[in-house]
Design a protein around this nucleic acid. Structure first.
Lengths: 345, 345
DNA sequence: CAATTTTTGATGTACGTAAATCAAAAATGT
DNA sequence: ACATTTTTGATTTACGTACATCAAAAATTG
């Protein structure tokens, strides 16, 4: 049988109350006695039954998740994962409030952060917009003892406790290697399609991609970056113009969202098979395009992992515990049509 | 506040005992009363506090994990994950026994299974050897009400409850697509290096790989399969002979273990950069070879995921609960040198 | 050595559920 | 209407920990 506090008390020759004082760092224990108890804990291999402890404490964790609104498939998937976490809140003793804000709007985000602040949560997770006033708002939360985790998009210099997202420079590098090798058999240039260079993730991905192309595939000509504002209609127009302008196009790296327009342009102009296309985020659209062969590879960050990691980290920070950073690192998944995961409800 | 059994009893106008009878499917409740209670549960949104329930039940899950011995890096990593799960056993109410057996020996595995049987565990996880007598032993366990999950290597027709491993046909297909596209720029043949065709995983991977090569890259010549018995020394010899025999070799797909010999042969003969090499399982060796460029891509199954999934499934089966198969599906990870996860301790 | 402070013990209640017992009430069959 | 069976209620104990209270013992101080 697993040892309990009673066993520890008996082994150490002290009362239950003393063991409790040691375990919960309460005052009023001589260091000699403390040592005796700790030795007993060590020899018995006692570990606190967390379930029973939480039950007794009635501990719960009120968290606020701030996510961008809009029809971005990835963000909607992320919201779905947060809602799934809310459904689990009973067993995880969390109490999650979802706070939607317009995308890419620093001012509104600052307001949302102070609104979250007023509800006095134990922690806040936020998809950050990279602006100094947002960083200030995050600082205020932290100064008030509220844990803050950035989600998907980071905010360096804000003093946030943790970033739950992928290394986007590495993601760009991975795309570069795939692009270079997939187009190895042919000539032609490569285009990069971004959402906006004002967003940190996109800048990082471009940096990684360009670096690998320059280092390892210097013969390949890189066209100037096209910014599609993650807008399917605009993207489609831009891509149509691109393929007309560049009959010799070997590949397109789409590092932002709004891939519907990209796919539409490629399929309507009959270029879906000839141009090597690499995109980000596995959504119903990108999945279909991958399966049909219009997209050749998708780099993905698992939104479910990110949300669950954010919650684990927020809990740990709220309890003042350490986080094993390596364990919370989010992987970059590569999907080809052959290793697509089964579609979930 | 979250509703409790007391609230449900009050709402339904019945006693605590009746609510308990409904919740735990105990007999002696009229269906009208049962309905009343269930309506109360629904309207209040009551969810059982699993922590409290487990505490009250004092439930624990004795499991046996049967793994092959030997210096196979992947298997040692798997063992490490099982030990990590043993360390968590306190909080997860599991009680895991590790049973090592010589690799690829059906007879010994049967003995190990009956030894496990005698300890009367709630469940058994086993890296299966594909043999009828093993299937028989698994059947005996299941007939005795013990849940059985196959790990990494499946055993169809044994009636096992679940397989915690990857779809190896899909893995082979993925390797095929990568090989075809990575070698797109050049002529030359492709070789396949297996451990043994007696093992199910290897057969499946070959099947998937060959299918994609035939369907999508019919011009590429596939050499006859080389069997290296997962033995580094033998593999090195065979690969050396191969590269001498086939000066025009474009790629090698190594679908088994023992990649140290492969890497050594390629590096010593100076072919490490010219031949496209795709291998399985991310180990310290394959990681180093990936980083140095000797291996171009590694397909991986996450041993940690597999072990945790196996435990979740064993628990569910032991409690007679349903498993959401889609949620327990193990993904095939693709690693390039650019998206390697940080090295863990 | 007495007075004071600090440390320890003993005990009880709480958390939300499980499980058992015994008595009471209601439904069923004849 | 009676006996019998089934259903329900009331109550208690337990799981392992947290936390509070009050008394007792030990250590420290003057």
């Amino acid at each position: 049988m697993r040892p309990t506090v009673h066993d520890v008390a008996a082994k150490a020759g002290v009362s239950l109350a003393t063991v409790d004082r040691v375990l919960n760092n309460r005052p009023g224990v001589r260091s000699v006695t403390r040592d005796r108890v700790e030795r007993a804990i060590a020899t018995l291999g006692y570990v606190r039954d967390v379930a029973a402890a939480n039950l007794a404490k009635g501990r719960n964790y009120p968290f606020v998740f701030i996510l961008p609104e809009g029809d971005n498939s990835f963000m909607r998937g992320l919201e779905g994962e947060v809602r799934a976490a809310m459904a689990r809140s009973a067993s995880e003793r969390t109490q999650i409030t979802l706070l939607p804000v317009p995308a890419f709007d620093a001012q509104v985000l600052v307001q949302a952060l102070s609104e979250a602040h007023e509800s006095r949560p134990a922690g806040v997770a936020v998809v950050a917009v990279d602006a100094p006033e947002v960083a200030e708002a995050v600082k205020r939360l932290r100064d008030d003892g509220i844990a803050v985790v950035t989600l998907v998009s980071d905010l360096p210099g804000s003093g946030r406790d943790h970033f739950a997202g992928v290394d986007n420079i590495a993601a760009g590098r991975t795309a570069g290697t795939l692009m270079g090798r997939f187009t190895g058999g042919r000539d032609g240039s490569v285009a990069v399609l971004a959402g906006s260079m004002l967003v940190r993730d996109h800048r990082d991905r471009l940096e990684g991609f360009s670096a690998v192309m320059a280092e390892e595939f210097p013969a390949r000509r890189l066209l100037p970056v096209i910014e599609g504002q993650d807008d399917p209609v605009l993207v489609e127009k831009l891509v149509r113009a691109l393929v007309e302008r560049e009959p010799d196009l070997a590949g397109i790296y789409s590092l932002g969202a709004g891939n519907r327009g990209l796919v539409a342009a490629l399929e309507k102009t009959g270029n879906s098979k000839t141009i090597c296309t690499i995109a980000h985020e596995l959504t119903p659209h990108s999945r279909a395009a991958l399966r049909s062969g219009t997209i050749d590879a998708v780099l993905n960050q698992d939104a479910g992992h990110e949300v669950r990691s954010a919650i684990r980290v927020l809990k740990a920070k709220a309890d003042g515990l350490a986080v094993i950073e390596a364990q919370e690192r989010i992987r970059i998944d590569i999907f080809l049509k052959d290793n697509l995961p089964i579609e979930q409800a």
